[in-house]
Amino acid sequence: MTGFAELHHGAGPLLLPGAWDHASATAFAAEGFRAVGTTSLGVAAAAGLPDGTSATRDETLRLALTLGSAPFLLSVDAEGGYSEVPEEVGEFARLLAAVGAVGINLEDGLGPVERHAAKIAAVKAAAPELFVNARTDTCWLGDGEGTLRRLDAYREAGADGVFVPGLTDPRRIAALVRHLDEVPLNVLYSPAGPTLGRLTDLGVRRVSLGSLPYRRALGAALEAVREIRAGRTPRGAAPSYADADAWARRGDPAHSAGR
């Protein structure tokens, strides 16, 4: 079991923040996060591209190249793998592993189960060391119908963990944990859903923050400029210029602050 896989079997769930650039990733590491994910929305928005349309393959790989050698474990949100051809998805995964990523998140978008299972199998064949987190969008884009069938197919294809964003009902979470047995269940944190402590009690092994940090950062920026425009002093904490500059520099000693 790799170090990243082991984080899914500790005393509590792996809490995975979603970074969108070099500075956000290293800032999370400086806060003590041993593993950092990427958020496809943040990466796409920073590049001026739409999310979830396979438009950010190059940007995602470029970010992985800058972060893969940093002293934290990197898991990459690769949408649906940027291709419907399993072999091409496997090749992209191989490139991620080559630059130092340890995990990949693949979403099915409610497409054919067999096709997504084939993508997972292709990734495990091309980069067996990558932790494949297989995401189904049954609760994100649909009403939850077919969740078990999809997850069972993805486990059979070789997924190391499964991800069900949009799942917030405690009873359904507990039932899914029991069904999956030792396979780690990943859920997306929702401010309106169970707390981290409650998710721990339910047996969730991984809690992703997704695009929430990015959206909160945008919200804080908007709040600050509105307050200043209104003649008020903006509230909330802001990192110093020196800290932000240090987090943005590749190879800076600040990278190791979270290790």
Score class of each variant (00 low, 15 high):
115 R>A: 04
95 L>S: 14
94 R>K: 06
81 G>W: 14
70 A>D: 11
88 E>R: 09
72 F>V: 04
87 E>V: 13
111 G>M: 03
66 T>D: 11
74 L>D: 08
99 V>S: 05
63 L>H: 14
73 L>D: 15
61 L>W: 06
66 T>Q: 14
113 V>N: 00
112 P>N: 08
91 E>Q: 08
106 L>Q: 05
78 A>H: 14
117 A>C: 06
114 E>G: 00
68 G>I: 15
99 V>T: 05
72 F>N: 10
95 L>F: 03
76 V>E: 05
69 S>I: 02
105 N>M: 03
84 E>Y: 05
117 A>Y: 01
102 V>N: 07
63 L>N: 14
99 V>A: 05
75 S>F: 05
88 E>N: 08
106 L>R: 07
84 E>G: 13
86 P>F: 11
119 K>T: 01
80 G>F: 03
60 T>Q: 10
73 L>Q: 14
96 L>H: 09
75 S>W: 03
62 R>E: 13
74 L>E: 06
60 T>Y: 15
113 V>W: 00
108 D>L: 12
74 L>G: 04
101 A>Q: 05
119 K>I: 01
80 G>W: 03
111 G>C: 07
117 A>T: 00
115 R>F: 00
68 G>H: 08
75 S>E: 13
79 E>V: 09
90 G>Y: 07
74 L>M: 07
100 G>R: 09
106 L>S: 03
79 E>M: 11
71 P>R: 12
116 H>D: 01
104 I>G: 08
92 F>G: 01
118 A>D: 01
86 P>W: 13
88 E>C: 02
84 E>T: 04
92 F>P: 07
113 V>R: 04
79 E>C: 15
102 V>A: 08
83 S>T: 03
64 A>Q: 13
